[in-house]
Simulated assay, not measured.
Amino acid sequence: MTVYANVGAPPGGAPAVEPSVPGPLRYAALGDSLTAGVGDRVEGGWRGWAALLAEALTPDGATAHAPMGGAAPHPEPLAPFRNFATSGALTRDVRTEQTPAALAFGPDLASVVVGVNDTLRRAFDIAAIARALDEVCAALTARGTVLLTACLPDPGVMLGLPAPLARPLARRQRAVNNLVHALTARYGAVHLHAADPAWVADRSLWSPDRLHPGERGHRMIAARFHAMLTARGLTLGPPPPQEPERPPPTRTEALLWLATAGTGWMVRRSTDLLPELLWLAGAEMRHWARGTAARLDLRAEHALSRALTALPPPHPLARMGE
């Protein structure tokens, strides 16, 4: 059964309860910089919501396992946990690089949260994204892994871009989110609705780059996933604390980040995304001037519909431990 919850609001509905699993739950995190922990800095690197959730999946006394992937080293969580997420990862990277490693790890739970970087690339192809993400979900659930998914805010809104630039990105992110919703239902995943306007508007949840959660935001994501997993009988430890351990960055620290790492991020994206985004913005303005902007939305909806129709029939889902 699919479970939805808004970030910042109690999860609703009464999910189906999975059978309890003795011993520590093995948890693999797949995705991009959000899951790698960017925005939640600790001594030595990034931590993030996946590591916080991992700490809450196993009772005290479990053996620590170091995370893997692109995140810098950080204090080891208590659960048997591997973080395969890497900053900048696309859906195809999760499919070709992270999924085989996660399958070799043999997780009971796996979070698959990816897609924003795909919307920020010139070669955005919802059909290719759908095929790759479906293959990831199918491979994990075929071995009985319980999936965790999330839909996310569109980057145009987060960055405060002008409407002609923001609308094309919003259309792309909406397509990715609708794809994630469809695959969530297809594979019985636990789903976190993190595109809620209240989540976007609360700046205390976000880091200075305006694209990644800060410590408070990462803690909230971890707590919401923990609540939904608990409803399924799939957590053994207490929920992760939601109050931050460190004060939020000062305005000076935020400006320093934007002047250093933020500038580098924009330069790297400009060579790939900016020409395409300017072309999209031009097309957007032409359609608005003609009163035909709705055609762009219909075109995106039809592309997603074709992509979902082209997916192969799902295999029967295995139960955890099978």
Rank of each mutant, 00 (worst) to 15 (best):
T263Q: 06
A71N: 04
T260E: 01
A5C: 11
L109Y: 04
R268P: 01
E55F: 10
L229G: 00
P208L: 01
E135C: 02
T96W: 15
A127S: 13
L147H: 09
A142E: 09
G262M: 11
S207H: 03
E276H: 14
L109T: 03
R246A: 14
P247T: 05
D60K: 08
D32C: 03
D272W: 02
P19L: 07
P164D: 11
Q98V: 13
E135I: 01
L273A: 03
A175Q: 09
L192D: 03
P67N: 10
D154N: 06
A29I: 00
M285W: 12
R286N: 09
L298G: 14
L236T: 15
W288T: 09
L273H: 00
P15H: 01
A289Q: 13
T263E: 15
D108R: 02
A132L: 05
L165P: 10
P107G: 11
H212W: 04
A72Q: 12
T91C: 14
L78S: 12
A132Q: 13
W288V: 13
N6G: 05
D209F: 06
N178C: 10
A85R: 01
L179N: 13
A281W: 04
A110R: 06
A36Y: 00
A9K: 15
L236G: 12
A223K: 11
R290L: 11
V146S: 06
C137R: 07
R224S: 11
A293L: 14
R210K: 10
R122Y: 11
L236Y: 13
L34K: 12
S207P: 04
V21W: 15
L165V: 15
A66P: 02
P248Q: 06
A182S: 13
A281R: 03
L234Y: 00
T271C: 12
G48I: 00
A254H: 00
D118V: 02
G44I: 01
R95P: 08
Y27T: 00
L296W: 10
E276Q: 13
G45R: 02
R122A: 15
D108V: 03
W265Y: 12
L278Y: 09
A101S: 12
L308F: 06
Q173V: 05
L229W: 01
G39H: 02
G45L: 02
A182V: 11
T260Y: 00
V136D: 02
G188D: 11
H302A: 15
V94R: 08
L133F: 05
T250K: 05
V38S: 04
T263A: 10
T309W: 13
P240N: 08
H65V: 12
H193E: 15
V38Q: 03
L256W: 10
M266N: 08
A104K: 07
L317S: 07
D40V: 04
A182Y: 09
P77C: 12
E135G: 10
P249W: 03
A9E: 13
V200Q: 13
L296V: 12
A104C: 06
G217N: 06
A201N: 08
R269C: 08
T63C: 08
F124L: 14
L165W: 12
G106H: 10
L258Y: 05
